[in-house]
């Protein structure tokens, strides 16, 4: 990361200091509530009804790392929709930034670095909650934090590329309803994808969230298989890099005319 990109992070941090209250609710409280309701309430029912159905771990222990990855997706996605669009179209902050020595590339790197920082904060806090709930099974779980950051970054890069192509925010509701919500529900967060209809399984396998969940879950439960983990990380990195390249192009088109 260049010094120039660091300025972008600084700008965002300044703004965040004034608006952090809301994002704490969204990025942190929501997975905790999901974990409490689904993990404990519903989990109790599942553990009684079908003990051992999840290879011997409790539903809460199964669900928690999944929620961590899913929340990384949500944070990465949200941070690269409205805030980015605002800086391109509404507040036009980027136009002001590009009038300085900073380039589009600095902007993009800076934004992604900032989002990574947010992801890191969220993941660390969520890990603390997991420990509190007693749903962690392996010390490797500390690596679930960088895994979550990578997952969030994969989404942030791709969604930034998408946001830069939009001329108003109406596309976002479709993005959330038709992409993010289905991913949240069907990528293995709440139940193993083996329980999906056979036709859908390969689709789930292609999504970044599936690999994020697989990685965080393996680390939290201590069931990590090195080859599988390498594949998961590689897929996520590919999404992140591919997304960033695309975003560099679309942002450039949106800003330099």
């Amino acid at each position: 990361m260049t010094v120039a990109a660091l300025r972008v992070v600084e700008h965002n941090a300044t703004y965040y200091r004034r608006t952090w209250r809301g994002s704490v609710v969204l990025t942190f409280l929501s997975p905790v509530l999901f974990l409490a309701a689904m993990g404990l309430g519903l989990g109790g029912m599942i553990d009684r009804a079908a003990p051992g159905v999840l290879s011997g771990v409790s539903y809460a222990a199964f669900l928690a790392p999944g929620l961590l990855a899913a929340q990384a997706m949500n944070t990465g996605t949200f941070e690269s929709t409205y805030p980015i669009m605002s800086r391109i179209l509404w507040r036009r902050t980027y136009h002001a930034v590009l009038a300085t020595p900073l380039s589009v590339r600095d902007l993009l790197v800076g934004e992604l670095a900032w989002i990574s920082l947010r992801l890191l904060m969220m993941a660390a806090a969520f890990l603390a909650v997991m420990l509190l709930f007693g749903v962690v099974r392996s010390p490797l779980v500390v690596l679930a934090v960088p895994a979550a950051v990578l997952t969030g970054l994969a989404f942030a890069a791709c969604v930034t590329a998408f946001t830069a192509t939009q001329t108003n925010d109406s596309g976002f509701s479709s993005l959330f309803r038709f992409v993010i919500t289905p991913l949240f529900l069907f990528s293995g967060t709440f139940f193993p994808i083996e329980r999906l209809p056979e036709l859908l399984r390969p689709v789930a396998y292609l999504t970044p969230l599936y690999h994020g969940v697989s990685l965080t879950r393996g680390l939290s439960l201590g069931t990590l298989d090195p080859t599988g983990a390498a594949i998961d990380a590689a897929v996520l990195a590919a999404y992140a890099v591919g997304g960033a390249i695309a975003a560099r192009i679309t942002l450039g088109r949106a800003l330099v005319k």
Binding site: L42, S170, T181, F186, F190, F191, R195, L196
Partner: peptide, 29 residues
């Protein structure tokens, strides 16, 4: 913007399929 209107219908449907049937397969009755 009828698409926005229609899309509102899918959210609970996705939840029904994901939670009701997906998790339901773990819960049973």
């Amino acid at each position: 913007i009828w698409l926005v209107l229609v899309s509102g219908f899918f959210e609970p449907l996705f939840y029904l399929l994901g939670i009701g049937f997906g998790i339901g397969s773990l819960v049973g009755t």
